[in-house]
Amino acid sequence: MAAGGDHGSPDSYRSPLASRYASPEMCFVFSDRYKFRTWRQLWLWLAEAEQTLGLPITDEQIQEMKSNLENIDFKMAAEEEKRLRHDVMAHVHTFGHCCPKAAGIIHLGATSCYVGDNTDLIILRNALDLLLPKLARVISRLADFAKERASLPTLGFTHFQPAQLTTVGKRCCLWIQDLCMDLQNLKRVRDDLRFRGVKGTTGTQASFLQLFEGDDHKVEQLDKMVTEKAGFKRAFIITGQTYTRKVDIEVLSVLASLGASVHKICTDIRLLANLKEMEEPFEKQQIGSSAMPYKRNPMRSERCCSLARHLMTLVMDPLQTASVQWFERTLDDSANRRICLAEAFLTADTILNTLQNISEGLVVYPKVIERRIRQELPFMATENIIMAMVKAGGSRQDCHEKIRVLSQQAASVVKQEGGDNDLIERIQVDAYFSPIHSQLDHLLDPSSFTGRASQQVQRFLEEEVYPLLKPYESVMKVKAELCL
Rank of each mutant, 00 (worst) to 15 (best):
L84I: 06
G240E: 00
R20E: 04
K391G: 12
G5F: 11
T330W: 01
L186Y: 10
L222F: 14
Q184K: 14
E328H: 08
E383Q: 00
A256H: 05
Q221Y: 09
N336W: 02
G8F: 14
M476T: 14
M316D: 08
K367C: 08
R452W: 11
G169Y: 03
S290L: 03
S407G: 11
E148P: 03
G259Y: 04
E25G: 09
D144R: 14
R404N: 11
L377R: 03
Q221C: 11
L186P: 08
Q205G: 05
Q286L: 02
T58I: 05
R296F: 12
L443M: 05
A273I: 11
S412K: 11
C340N: 15
T267Y: 10
H107I: 07
I57S: 01
N274I: 01
H91K: 00
E148D: 12
G54H: 10
P162I: 06
Y243G: 12
L124S: 10
K391Y: 12
L135F: 07
S434H: 06
E280D: 11
Q285P: 08
T201A: 06
K415P: 04
I265H: 12
Q61D: 13
V262L: 11
G5P: 08
L209N: 15
G451S: 10
T244E: 05
A127F: 10
N353M: 09
I72G: 10
N274F: 10
T111H: 00
E417Q: 07
I139L: 11
I238F: 01
Y13N: 14
Q325V: 11
P16L: 15
R270D: 00
F74E: 10
L331N: 09
R371L: 01
Q458F: 07
G288E: 02
D420V: 00
V429I: 07
Q205M: 04
Q221I: 08
Q455T: 10
A260N: 00
E481K: 13
T321Q: 05
S438D: 01
Y21H: 13
P446Y: 03
S334K: 03
Q177Y: 05
K246T: 04
P378M: 04
G203D: 00
S257D: 13
I123S: 13
K477R: 15
L46Y: 09
P435W: 00
R171E: 03
F36D: 11
V251P: 02
L174Q: 13
S67G: 06
D268T: 08
R20Y: 03
V315L: 11
A163C: 01
D120K: 15
D398W: 11
V413K: 08
D87L: 11
L469A: 13
T450H: 02
L183W: 09
F345T: 13
D445S: 15
C304K: 00
V315P: 06
Q458A: 13
E250T: 09
I62M: 06
A392K: 07
S151M: 09
S306T: 03
V364I: 05
V465Q: 15
A90G: 14
G116D: 14
Q241H: 00
A308L: 02
R452D: 02
V251I: 10
V413F: 11
I358W: 05
F95M: 08
P100T: 13
L275H: 02
L165S: 10
R137Y: 14
S448W: 13
V368Y: 10
A348M: 12
A78E: 06
R459T: 12
T382V: 09
K284G: 09
Q177P: 01
I105F: 11
L17R: 02
C98N: 08
S151R: 06
A410Y: 07
Q458M: 15
V363C: 03
R40F: 03
E481F: 05
R303C: 13
S9G: 05
F345S: 12
N357A: 12
P435A: 09
K218D: 01
E328K: 00
L331D: 00
E464K: 01
V262W: 06
V198G: 13
P133A: 15
E250M: 06
Q241K: 02
G231Y: 10
I373R: 01
L307E: 03
L121T: 10
Q416W: 12
E250P: 15
S301Q: 03
M26Y: 02
H97R: 11
D332Q: 03
D191N: 08
S261K: 08
A348H: 01
D398T: 13
L272A: 01
L17S: 11
F208N: 05
P293F: 05
S447E: 12
A291T: 05
V413C: 08
C483R: 13
T166G: 08
A22P: 14
V363P: 05
V478P: 15
F460I: 11
K477G: 12
G104I: 12
I424H: 14
E360T: 13
E148S: 12
V324W: 03
Q51V: 05
D333G: 01
A381K: 06
L352N: 07
K147H: 13
L444Q: 05
L377A: 03
V226D: 01
Q241M: 08
E280Q: 06
D216W: 15
E463M: 13
E277P: 00
I386R: 03
S12Y: 15
I123G: 08
T244A: 11
E302W: 00
L258W: 09
F282S: 14
F28C: 07
C399V: 09
R329K: 08
E283D: 05
E220G: 11
P162W: 03
A143K: 00
L355K: 00
G109F: 01
T350K: 04
F236Q: 06
I386W: 04
K199A: 09
A150W: 08
V198N: 14
H86Q: 10
A344F: 05
P378Q: 02
L319F: 02
G96R: 03
Q41T: 10
M26D: 00
T119Q: 14
L352I: 10
V247H: 13
L377M: 01
V324E: 04
L174Y: 03
P162Q: 15
R20D: 04
D445A: 13
L272F: 10
E279F: 05
E473P: 14
R396D: 04
K233D: 08
R337G: 02
T242P: 11
Q210S: 12
A77Q: 05
I105D: 08
W175E: 10
D59S: 06
E220M: 13
S359R: 14
F145E: 13
D117L: 02
Q210D: 09
G109D: 08
Q320L: 09
L193E: 12
F28Y: 11
K187I: 15
V364R: 04
R85P: 00
D73P: 14
L84A: 10
C98G: 09
R329T: 00
R194D: 12
L193R: 04
K199T: 07
T350W: 06
D268F: 04
T166K: 04
G200P: 01
L174A: 08
E464Q: 13
M380R: 02
D420Y: 06
Q455F: 15
N126R: 05
F232H: 01
K224C: 10
A90D: 00
I72A: 07
H7K: 13
I358F: 07
L152K: 13
I385F: 05
C399H: 15
I351C: 06
Q210C: 10
C483D: 10
S9K: 11
I176E: 07
L46T: 03
D191W: 05
Y432I: 05
Y243D: 06
L444C: 00
S12P: 01
V168F: 11
S454A: 12
M387C: 06
L362N: 14
Q356M: 02
K224T: 10
Q286K: 01
I237W: 08
C340E: 00
L84H: 11
S301T: 01
